[in-house]
Nucleic acid binder design. Structure first.
Lengths: 168, 168
DNA sequence: ACATTAAGTCAGCCTTGTTGACTTTCCAAG
DNA sequence: CTTGGAAAGTCAACAAGGCTGACTTAATGT
């Protein structure tokens, strides 16, 4: 089996990574991400929602009272795209939008009771899979998993990721 | 900091995983996957293609001569969805579709020279990021990363993933 | 007073999923 | 041998959810 190795740019490292090893990593991400989203997707479909709604609900739950602009930064989508999703969630009574007290231009977003309920259902499904995977793989593997994922992020999302470690 | 822990279904395990730990895993997947797809997305955009084209090119390169049906199984999308992408790739001369010799209903798919070129550009971008992440995290972390991802897949994709380890 | 900012809206586009209906080809049972 | 179903692929039409651009409204800060 011919193992062609592409040149590593910059200072040659200590680790020898074949293209084949890297490709397996790439495919692992592809298949794992599909599994990762499969359970919530089923729940969302019942409600007539998509992944966009899930992301919105997740991060509003994560940072209650967050503003629209804040959410835009986190999700990395356009205002118009988020707005469509947000509008339906507000209309359906899952998210509440309160005018800011200090700055009345801002809208602060909160999950309603129904919103919390959906978020619970979605995240519990996802946690279940994550928990199972973590248990199957063991604590050392979990540490490695997190390390690699963090190293794979772009700098700005990584900052957000770490900032969110300790609450809003 | 209140750490609520949801009940682990089934036999209580040795690992205590808080909801907070699991949620960090979930967010890590979200942000990392975005980084993972960012580089190829930029290249694809220049050619007027999307992720669907990338996936098709990737797996045709991976298993030259594969049939449409085969690809369907791997990608987990509908025939019609794949077909649209495939049609443009064939029209643009990146993929060649040969009628099967044994079974003339089947179409066997191959990358043309131009197809190989695009695949190289895409996968090299992705490999670069993966390589960097792997190096930053170290070999032990990489092993853990793979273990957890594999554990996160649904059984059928996992089978495909492992089957592809040693070539088509 | 005026420029800037946050939020929201409308119109229109693209990609990529979906379902349903269809053709061509193959194979197996009568 | 023929014929009827199954399998592979194709075409048409629709929906979700991205995107850009132009614009309004309201509040803020200079």
């Amino acid at each position: 089996m011919a193992e062609r190795v592409t040149a590593g740019q910059g200072g040659e490292s200590l680790l020898f990574l074949t293209d084949e090893q890297l490709r397996k990593g790439i495919e692992a991400m592809f298949f794992a991400y599909r599994g990762f989203t499969a359970d919530p997707d089923r729940i969302l479909a019942k409600h007539g929602y998509g992944r966009a709604h899930h992301r919105a609900v997740h991060f509003v739950n994560r940072s209650p009272g967050t503003t629209v602009n804040n959410l835009l930064d986190i999700l990395g989508v356009t205002k118009q795209s988020l707005n469509r999703v947000l509008r339906t969630l507000i209309a359906d009574g899952l998210i509440e939008s309160r005018v800011g007290t200090r700055d009345k231009r801002e809208r602060h977003l909160y999950l309603t009771e129904a919103g919390v309920e959906l978020e619970q259902a979605l995240s519990e499904a996802q946690r279940r899979r994550m928990r199972q995977a973590f248990r199957d793989a063991g604590p050392e593997a979990v540490a490695g998993f997190k390390q690699v994922l963090e190293a794979m992020m772009d700098p700005e999302p990584r900052r957000q990721f770490n900032r969110m470690k300790d609450g809003s």
